[in-house]
Amino acid sequence: MSGYNFAYLDEDTKRMIRRAILKGLAVPGYQVPFASREMPMPYGWGTGGVQVSAAVLVPEDVMKVIDQGADDTTNAVSIRAFFQKTAQVAVTEATGEATLIQTRHRIPERPLTEDQILVYQVPIPEPLRFLEPRETETRKMHALAEYGLMHVKLYEDIARHGEIATSYAYPVKVADRYVMDPSPIPKFDNPKLESAAIQLFGAGREQRIYALPPWTPAVSLDFEDHPFEARKAPGCCGICGAEDSYLDEVILDDAGGRMFVCSDTDYCRSRVAAAEDAA
């Protein structure tokens, strides 16, 4: 696309974002304020992730974009097209081939490697926001590591429902210091946060970037006698038969017919291909 810099953002802006990313990597889980730019896509649609990706992208990268685990959902298609147009990078749907993966709401099933970067789109970066709406107050709570309120919320869940009723955006404590919102991934994905890849989180509207360096401990908050459990719908994928992957429910007819399929479309496809090869 003529008239725009590589990956859309100008180099000054990229430098500013890279500084925020480096600071985020140096202080894992800490939300670094950054001067988020107005992007040519709406706030809440991945502007934070797009800015982070644009700042780390190099021409040699192979990029994969997923939304809800799938490469073919409309917003993923739109963001992938944006980078194809503005950076002319190679794109892929295969998790193993990608060097940079931008995601919304999922971590790929296939374990990531130390050669990969996973960029999350984050709507509300502040894990305490719904307990305390004032930014001045939540920043103080982080600074002083006052997280008692977070456990009050979990306590209330157990008192009311018999278990912790947070099923996605399940908060984690990073490197025993900051409580962090892992973005709205299902809690099934939380254990995958301790990964070989660099994980970067971008919230455009809220002007925050945070990060997890490889293998940073990210412990899901819980109680000793009500330990965290990664959960998914019971059963296996109706297409590839996987029992270990997160499942989407698909309604087949109006008579209650439904099936469960892998939310990670690349994982599902590669399992089907492997089975066909073996046969």
């Binding site: 306590y155 008192a159 819980d222």
Partner: peptide, 20 residues
């Protein structure tokens, strides 16, 4: 927040992590 949560908050804020 429930009565139990109100009383428990201080305990949790100083590190209590056993629900029971």
């Amino acid at each position: 927040v429930s009565a139990g949560g109100n009383v428990g908050e201080r305990l949790m804020s100083v590190g209590a992590r056993n629900y029971g």
